[in-house]
Amino acid sequence: MAKFYENEKSETNKKSDLRIKAIENGTVIDHIPCGQAFNVLKIMGINENFKKTVSFVMNAVGSRGGKDVVKIEGMELTEKQVAAISLIAPNATVNIIRDYNVISKTQIKTPNEIHGIIKCINPNCITNSKEPIQTSFKVESESYDESILRCKYCDSIISDDIVKHLF
Protein backbone atom coordinates (compact mmCIF):
# COMPACT_ATOMS: atom_id res chain seq x y z
CA MET A 1 0.00 0.00 0.00
CA ALA A 2 2.85 2.36 0.81
CA LYS A 3 4.23 1.95 -2.68
CA PHE A 4 1.72 4.35 -4.23
CA TYR A 5 2.90 7.18 -2.09
CA GLU A 6 6.56 6.32 -2.41
CA ASN A 7 6.12 6.56 -6.16
CA GLU A 8 4.43 9.88 -5.70
CA LYS A 9 7.32 11.05 -3.52
CA SER A 10 9.84 10.02 -6.09
CA GLU A 11 7.84 11.83 -8.74
CA THR A 12 7.89 15.00 -6.74
CA ASN A 13 11.66 14.69 -6.58
CA LYS A 14 11.88 15.05 -10.33
CA LYS A 15 12.25 18.75 -10.95
CA SER A 16 10.15 18.63 -14.11
CA ASP A 17 7.18 17.12 -12.18
CA LEU A 18 7.56 19.01 -8.94
CA ARG A 19 4.19 20.35 -7.89
CA ILE A 20 3.21 19.55 -4.30
CA LYS A 21 5.23 18.83 -1.24
CA ALA A 22 4.48 15.47 0.40
CA ILE A 23 2.43 15.53 3.60
CA GLU A 24 3.30 13.69 6.79
CA ASN A 25 -0.18 12.91 8.10
CA GLY A 26 -3.49 13.70 6.45
CA THR A 27 -5.50 13.09 3.32
CA VAL A 28 -4.85 13.19 -0.40
CA ILE A 29 -7.90 13.35 -2.64
CA ASP A 30 -6.97 12.40 -6.16
CA HIS A 31 -8.81 12.17 -9.49
CA ILE A 32 -11.09 15.11 -8.79
CA PRO A 33 -12.67 16.43 -12.02
CA CYS A 34 -10.91 19.57 -13.28
CA GLY A 35 -12.17 22.70 -11.59
CA GLN A 36 -13.75 20.98 -8.57
CA ALA A 37 -10.80 21.32 -6.14
CA PHE A 38 -12.23 24.51 -4.60
CA ASN A 39 -15.56 22.81 -4.06
CA VAL A 40 -13.87 19.86 -2.35
CA LEU A 41 -12.19 22.32 0.02
CA LYS A 42 -15.57 23.92 0.65
CA ILE A 43 -17.11 20.54 1.51
CA MET A 44 -14.25 19.94 3.94
CA GLY A 45 -14.94 23.24 5.61
CA ILE A 46 -11.54 24.61 4.74
CA ASN A 47 -11.46 28.38 4.67
CA GLU A 48 -9.14 31.26 5.55
CA ASN A 49 -9.21 30.21 9.22
CA PHE A 50 -7.78 26.75 8.56
CA LYS A 51 -4.26 26.73 10.04
CA LYS A 52 -2.69 23.55 8.66
CA THR A 53 -1.03 22.98 5.30
CA VAL A 54 -3.33 22.63 2.34
CA SER A 55 -2.06 22.24 -1.18
CA PHE A 56 -3.77 21.46 -4.43
CA VAL A 57 -3.13 21.07 -8.10
CA MET A 58 -5.65 22.02 -10.72
CA ASN A 59 -5.72 20.65 -14.24
CA ALA A 60 -2.92 18.18 -13.62
CA VAL A 61 -2.28 15.61 -16.34
CA GLY A 62 -2.95 12.17 -14.89
CA SER A 63 -3.12 8.70 -16.39
CA ARG A 64 -6.88 9.17 -16.91
CA GLY A 65 -6.63 12.69 -18.33
CA GLY A 66 -6.99 16.03 -16.57
CA LYS A 67 -7.67 16.12 -12.86
CA ASP A 68 -7.44 18.17 -9.68
CA VAL A 69 -5.66 16.88 -6.57
CA VAL A 70 -6.07 18.13 -2.99
CA LYS A 71 -3.70 17.40 -0.09
CA ILE A 72 -4.54 18.36 3.47
CA GLU A 73 -2.22 18.00 6.41
CA GLY A 74 -3.67 16.71 9.69
CA MET A 75 -7.22 16.05 8.57
CA GLU A 76 -9.19 12.95 7.70
CA LEU A 77 -12.60 12.92 6.04
CA THR A 78 -15.83 12.13 7.81
CA GLU A 79 -18.36 9.77 6.23
CA LYS A 80 -20.63 12.72 5.41
CA GLN A 81 -17.79 14.60 3.72
CA VAL A 82 -16.94 11.56 1.60
CA ALA A 83 -20.62 11.28 0.54
CA ALA A 84 -20.71 14.97 -0.38
CA ILE A 85 -17.44 14.77 -2.35
CA SER A 86 -18.79 11.74 -4.22
CA LEU A 87 -21.53 13.96 -5.67
CA ILE A 88 -19.08 16.22 -7.46
CA ALA A 89 -16.19 13.80 -7.87
CA PRO A 90 -17.63 10.30 -8.25
CA ASN A 91 -14.32 8.86 -9.45
CA ALA A 92 -12.06 10.42 -6.82
CA THR A 93 -9.79 8.37 -4.60
CA VAL A 94 -9.09 9.16 -0.95
CA ASN A 95 -5.66 8.32 0.35
CA ILE A 96 -4.99 8.41 4.07
CA ILE A 97 -1.40 9.30 4.85
CA ARG A 98 0.34 8.43 8.12
CA ASP A 99 4.02 9.13 8.60
CA TYR A 100 4.45 9.79 4.85
CA ASN A 101 2.95 6.38 4.01
CA VAL A 102 -0.33 5.68 2.32
CA ILE A 103 -2.13 3.49 4.80
CA SER A 104 -5.37 3.28 2.85
CA LYS A 105 -6.50 4.15 -0.63
CA THR A 106 -10.21 4.11 -1.27
CA GLN A 107 -12.16 4.68 -4.45
CA ILE A 108 -15.07 6.97 -3.55
CA LYS A 109 -18.44 5.34 -4.06
CA THR A 110 -21.52 7.48 -4.57
CA PRO A 111 -24.21 6.24 -2.15
CA ASN A 112 -27.76 5.56 -3.39
CA GLU A 113 -29.09 8.06 -0.88
CA ILE A 114 -27.64 11.18 0.72
CA HIS A 115 -28.85 12.29 4.14
CA GLY A 116 -28.42 15.59 5.95
CA ILE A 117 -25.77 17.07 3.67
CA ILE A 118 -27.71 18.98 1.02
CA LYS A 119 -30.48 21.50 1.57
CA CYS A 120 -33.57 21.06 -0.61
CA ILE A 121 -33.82 23.59 -3.41
CA ASN A 122 -37.60 23.94 -2.86
CA PRO A 123 -38.31 26.57 -0.18
CA ASN A 124 -41.74 25.00 0.38
CA CYS A 125 -40.35 21.51 1.03
CA ILE A 126 -41.21 20.11 4.46
CA THR A 127 -37.47 19.67 5.10
CA ASN A 128 -37.13 23.47 5.02
CA SER A 129 -39.35 23.87 8.06
CA LYS A 130 -38.90 23.26 11.77
CA GLU A 131 -39.62 19.54 11.68
CA PRO A 132 -37.37 16.95 13.37
CA ILE A 133 -36.11 15.45 10.11
CA GLN A 134 -32.99 15.65 8.02
CA THR A 135 -32.96 16.11 4.27
CA SER A 136 -32.82 12.98 2.17
CA PHE A 137 -32.08 12.67 -1.53
CA LYS A 138 -32.03 9.74 -3.91
CA VAL A 139 -29.02 9.80 -6.22
CA GLU A 140 -30.66 9.23 -9.58
CA SER A 141 -27.67 9.19 -11.87
CA GLU A 142 -24.03 9.96 -11.61
CA SER A 143 -21.87 11.16 -14.43
CA TYR A 144 -18.17 11.86 -14.36
CA ASP A 145 -18.83 15.40 -13.27
CA GLU A 146 -21.93 15.61 -11.11
CA SER A 147 -24.90 13.63 -9.84
CA ILE A 148 -28.64 14.27 -10.10
CA LEU A 149 -30.43 14.32 -6.75
CA ARG A 150 -34.17 13.92 -6.12
CA CYS A 151 -35.62 15.02 -2.80
CA LYS A 152 -37.26 12.03 -1.12
CA TYR A 153 -39.89 14.33 0.38
CA CYS A 154 -40.94 16.76 -2.34
CA ASP A 155 -39.48 15.24 -5.55
CA SER A 156 -37.50 18.39 -6.39
CA ILE A 157 -34.43 17.77 -8.50
CA ILE A 158 -30.98 19.25 -7.98
CA SER A 159 -28.71 18.75 -10.95
CA ASP A 160 -26.60 21.89 -11.21
CA ASP A 161 -24.12 23.35 -8.80
CA ILE A 162 -24.80 20.86 -6.03
CA VAL A 163 -22.18 22.45 -3.77
CA LYS A 164 -24.29 25.60 -3.62
CA HIS A 165 -26.90 23.59 -1.71
CA LEU A 166 -24.61 22.17 0.97
CA PHE A 167 -25.63 22.97 4.53
Binding site: N124, C125, I126, T127, S129, C151, K152, C154, D155
Partner: peptide, 26 residues
Protein backbone atom coordinates in the same frame (compact mmCIF):
# COMPACT_ATOMS: atom_id res chain seq x y z
CA UNK B 1 -50.74 20.49 4.53
CA UNK B 2 -49.25 23.48 2.70
CA UNK B 3 -45.72 22.03 2.58
CA UNK B 4 -44.59 19.64 -0.14
CA UNK B 5 -43.54 16.28 1.29
CA UNK B 6 -45.61 16.74 4.46
CA UNK B 7 -47.54 13.51 3.94
CA UNK B 8 -44.37 11.54 3.28
CA UNK B 9 -42.85 12.90 6.47
CA UNK B 10 -46.05 12.15 8.38
CA UNK B 11 -45.85 8.53 7.22
CA UNK B 12 -42.45 8.28 8.92
CA UNK B 13 -43.92 9.26 12.28
CA UNK B 14 -47.38 7.70 12.15
CA UNK B 15 -48.36 4.28 13.44
CA UNK B 16 -51.50 4.28 11.28
CA UNK B 17 -51.96 4.77 7.50
CA UNK B 18 -51.60 8.33 6.21
CA UNK B 19 -53.80 9.43 3.33
CA UNK B 20 -52.45 12.46 1.53
CA UNK B 21 -55.22 14.95 0.80
CA UNK B 22 -52.83 17.44 -0.80
CA UNK B 23 -49.36 18.60 0.20
CA UNK B 24 -48.66 22.06 -1.19
CA UNK B 25 -47.98 21.87 -4.91
CA UNK B 26 -47.06 18.20 -4.48
Amino acid sequence: HPKEGAAFMASEFSTVPIINAGDGAG
